[in-house]
Simulated assay, not measured.
Amino acid sequence: MNKINKFNELHLSGDVLFLGNAWDLLSALALEKAGFKAIGTTSFGIARSLGFTDGENIEFDDHLKIIKMIVDSVKIPVSADIEAGYGEDIDTIVSNVLRTADAGVAGINIEDSLKKQKGLKEVEQHSRLLSKMRKELDRTGFEGFYINARIDTYLQKENPFLETINRAKAYAESGASGIFVPGLSADEEIKEIVYHVNAPLNLLSLPGLTNCNKLKELGVKRFSFGNALSDKMITLLEKNAARLLEYNETAHLYEE
């Protein structure tokens, strides 16, 4: 079974697919060793590891090199977070998606946020992108490639619920394999979206939204923690670095 098929199957089991989010090769290998069944890269974490902020501020080639390094070094499926596709037009974005697929990933996250300004792409515009993406992936031998359509309504809108359902339906009809709604956390809204949208729902870990077993009861199929682990590791590094100079002492590096 190839990794694309395996990744799709992980969304169809009775359990929530708990995705481990990696930002470099070391974190990917650690997540695989811990037993995660699949890895999703975090663009936020990758950007920070290279000294940049998130938001397509690094060169796509540099981003893709890290993704490929992870794919080439782990045995489990990898899904790549490529933000909004690193392009201003459909052809450029689709080309970048095909290059990402060529790197060996089993799927991508692709978001509907604008990058040069605040706001979201028009539903019809993003649906056309997803349709062309799916068509070109199928045409070039990547049938079943997992397109996780990220919907940023809960990050940008005052009353996002109804618009989220409309966007989710449109994206699923346009070729998305699943939908990803970061910021969604209310139980009733989660259940309603699961009921109305014919595509697996992916949620992002938040304070108070942390338990896979509870999410399974609500109908969620995939759960990820984004940049939370990379942020924790960076904070740990900064605290330890500061402590070294504060005390002129290295003893704490050897503490259990």
Rank of each mutant, 00 (worst) to 15 (best):
M1W: 01
M1E: 05
I4Q: 00
L10G: 02
L17G: 02
N21R: 00
W23I: 03
L25T: 04
L31Y: 02
K33F: 03
A34D: 03
F36K: 01
F36R: 03
K37G: 04
T42G: 06
R48S: 12
D54T: 08
N57K: 15
H63E: 08
V71H: 00
D81L: 08
E83K: 10
E83F: 11
Y86A: 12
D89W: 07
V94Y: 06
L98N: 08
T100C: 12
I110T: 01
D112M: 12
K115L: 14
K116F: 07
K121M: 11
V123T: 14
S131A: 14
N148K: 06
N148P: 05
A149E: 09
R150S: 09
Y154V: 09
Y154N: 12
L155P: 06
E158N: 15
E163Q: 13
E163S: 11
A170S: 15
A172Q: 14
E173K: 15
S174A: 15
S177E: 07
G178D: 08
I179V: 15
E189Y: 06
E192R: 13
E192M: 13
I193L: 07
H196W: 01
A199E: 06
L203T: 06
G208F: 07
C212L: 12
C212K: 13
N213Q: 14
N213C: 06
K221T: 02
L237M: 14
E238Q: 14
A241C: 09
E246V: 01
Y247F: 13
E249F: 08
H252F: 12
L253W: 06
E256S: 09
